[in-house]
Structure formats: C-alpha cells, structure tokens
Design a protein around this nucleic acid. Structure first.
Lengths: 227, 227
DNA sequence: TTAAAATATGACTGAGCGGTCATGCACGGC
DNA sequence: GCCGTGCATGACCGCTCAGTCATATTTTAA
C-alpha cells in the first residue's frame, strides 16, 4: 500500500504519477521498469517518490489494484440490464466485457496480464490481486449450469472453467490480429464492439463452439448441427 | 547464431554452458537473466562467453532454437505408428505430445513460453522461431477437416485454431494444478501421461468438449448428448 | 511570530549489468 | 626453434538501477 503521504497529494499530481507509472509498467516487465524513468517523466524528485511508496513493488501492486478496480467498475457499468440472462448469453456477455476492458484500458489490461504470465519476485501476492479482480468464477458458474440442466452432466466443470479462462484471456489479442483493427479504432468510440458486425460474428462463432461443446439441451446441439 | 568458436568446443563444455544458460533463462525473464551469473556458474571467463556468442540475445535465440528442435524431435519420436489417425485422435495426440514436452523438458518449454508471452526487445525474431517449432498448424488442419466432412462447415477454422492454440498452450500448467502432481512425478518415468488414468480422463473430457463443439458427424454429437 | 510537523529535493551509495580488450597460453606447420 | 592462429582470461569501462539521507522548503497550529 502507498503511504499516507501519497493520498494527501492533490488529485492532479496523483493522476500524473499514476499515468506515467501505468505507461512504464505496461511497456516493460517488472524487472525492467525504471523508477528513475518514472520520476523523471512525472517531474518529481526521486526522494519524493519514496515518500509516496515503500518501494517499486508497492507501486506495482497499487497499479495492479487500480487495474482490477477499473475492471470491476466496467463490469458493473455494463451489467446486463434487469434480470438474469440465459446462461449462454451470460457467458457471451462476460466475453464481451472482458474484451471491452482490453480495448478501453489496454495498459491496465496489460499490467494485469503480466501479473499472471510473467515472473515477479512476489508471484503469490500479484496473483492473488489479479484473481480477485478476475471476477469470473467460471467453475461455480458451470456447476450451477449443471444443476439447472444447462450444462451436460458429463462436463468436468473445473476443466471447462479452465478452457473458458484460457480462451477469454487471449481473445482480445486474437481479435486484434484477426480483424487487423487496432486498439485505437475501438478507443475513440469510432467502433463499438457491441455493434460491429465483424466482431460480433467472431463472438458468435466462438460462443457457438463453446455452446455446442458443453450444452445439454439437444435442441442446441441440433441447431448447430443443422447450420 | 553462436560463433564458429562455440561449435569447436568439446561437446561436454557446450553441454555445461547450455545447461546453465537454460536454467537461467527458464528461471527469469530475458532482461533479468544475467550473463555474469551464467559464466560464473558454468565456470568460464566472461571474455570466453563473448568468443562463443555475439551477445545475450544471440544466446537466448540459440536456446529458443534448441527448445524448438527438442520439441520437434519429441513429436517425431511419438508420431502415431502407421497410417493417419482419425482427425480427433490426431488432435488428441497433439495435445498429449504438447503436454509431454512440458513435462519432459520443463525448462525448454518455459523458455518457449516466455518467447510468446513476454516482451523481449526483438519480439518478431523470437516469435518467428517459436512459431516455426510450433508445429501445430491447426488452421490448415481444421480447413482440411471441413473438406473431409470431419468439421462442421459453420466453424470458423481460424477462430477454432486460435481456441485450440490457447487451450493447448496452457493445458500442461492446468494439469499440474488440477492433479497436484509435480513435474518430477512425470520426469522420472514413475508416471506415464499416456497411461495414468486421472490424466487420461482429463484429456478425454477436454477432447470431448472440443469434439462436441466442432464435430460435424451427428453421431458424435449424439454420443455426447447421450452420455 | 514562531515552533513544529509535513513534504520536497537531488546528490550520493553500492551493486550489478552487458560488453571490451590487452595479455597470455597452447598447439600445429614449417 | 619459431611463428601464426585460435582460444582463455579477468580486470575494467560506462552505465543504470533501487533506494537513502541530509538539507531545504512549505504548511499547519498556537
């Protein structure tokens, strides 16, 4: 946790520091991120930095925390309107929000991604933070799906949760490669992932594969077979 | 490419250097890997190292190359016996070999993994190397599957290839977490991933989900539905 | 006005890094 | 015996880094 002094700072100053730090930690791995570079770009003295944060790791975990909070905020902002959607619509919604986060806050997303795939000298703390904001408890979710006859009983829910996690985590990157779009295209609202047809078609196809793979209802299977 | 001098070295000396270097680059990200540490542990002089390799990147790419060669070797060693398997058996075999590589050569696997997910200052070269040995051209493979009526025509093969890649790449790590087994359990042959029932069951379930998701044959779908 | 508390500062430390280079040694051909 | 080539060596260079600290400045409270 940053020191008390940091939170006494004027909002604007904190904003600058955080923006610069997010830039740095999104651009390079933890070990390569430079505090010296950050303080220089943020226009503060090295000594000041250490009045705000315990050390490099303290800043890093703070950013990771910010990232997760932002994701959670986005999730609740786009929560499906009223009552529970159908399970597959829910899975689809999760996928979309997950991608949306990556497009809206690419740097924060990258920092969270790093925490999971890269080695930091404090992997456990980082992973705990990253997972807390992970928000998608696929496992419980799928187990519920079996109880409600949405998911085929033979499906190993823990395994299926792993599959969903792996796919959802990478889908944003794939989308960019596949469509040759860049994050900027999405960023300035010129392109709404919820509306763009090409993107929606890809979402559809992915969800189709997953649904056909785990759904219980024979009509769903037949629907895909008859396509 | 390492310099000529390196290849003139006695086999044993090269082995030591490579073993130590693999250790280092598997343990920490590229930027943190220390040449000084490697030469110290390998018992050679710093100057000697730079008679063998151009620079740090040269060594790293060499290791990446070794990793890919080892994977390809493992693949051909375990090539399905005689003639072509059924497409799904083939996908299953790919998954198993992919996991086997991770268990047999965890450090080499880690180095390859890093090349794909971490940022090195020469990402393009690294990715090219890693992909060349990636060996699994799911995309063409699935396209063939459609031609042969193995894969449902509505499946976006490029997308499905992404899904397979994402899942296959992570499955080894999942397997370890899920089964609470460690790499050592597999390493010394005490446990054969091709024979162990728990592991095979997980393979089965994953393949079931994928097959049910992309197969064309209605019997396959019904088979899963009737489970 | 003043004293105390909080905050800002940047030169400095000690360590580690990748990479270089002058020097020395070993060995094969003549 | 001599020389040339290839290899081995480790002190050394220039740089960057995270983190410290004595000092200066500003803010607060009385």
């Amino acid at each position: 946790m940053p020191k008390k002094t940091y939170f006494n700072l004027p909002e604007a100053k904190r904003q600058i520091i955080e923006a610069v730090a997010i830039d740095e930690f999104a651009a390079v791995p933890f070990a390569s991120a430079s505090i010296s570079a950050i303080v220089a770009r943020a226009g503060i003295a090295k000594g000041s930095f250490y009045q705000y944060f315990e050390d490099k790791k303290d800043l890093y975990l703070h950013l990771l925390d910010l990232s997760m909070k932002q994701k959670v905020a986005l999730v609740s902002q786009f929560k499906p309107s009223e009552r529970a959607l159908d399970m597959f619509d829910y899975l689809r919604w999760m996928l979309q929000v997950s991608v949306l986060f990556e497009m809206r806050y690419p740097k924060l997303a990258k920092i969270a991604y790093r925490a999971l795939v890269e080695d930091v000298p404090f992997a456990d703390e980082a992973e705990k933070l990253a997972h807390r904001g992970g928000m998608f408890y696929f496992n419980d979710f799928l187990a519920q799906g079996i109880l409600h006859d949405d998911v085929a009983t033979w499906v190993d829910t823990d395994m299926a949760a792993f599959l969903l996690g792996a796919v959802y985590n990478q889908f944003g990157r794939y989308l960019l490669k596949r469509t040759s779009l860049s994050i900027e295209d999405f960023a300035d609202g010129k392109l709404d992932i919820f509306k763009d047809q090409v993107v929606q078609d890809l979402f559809d196809n992915l969800m189709d594969i997953i649904m056909a793979g785990i759904a219980r209802d024979p009509e769903i299977r037949n629907h895909y077979f008859n396509k």
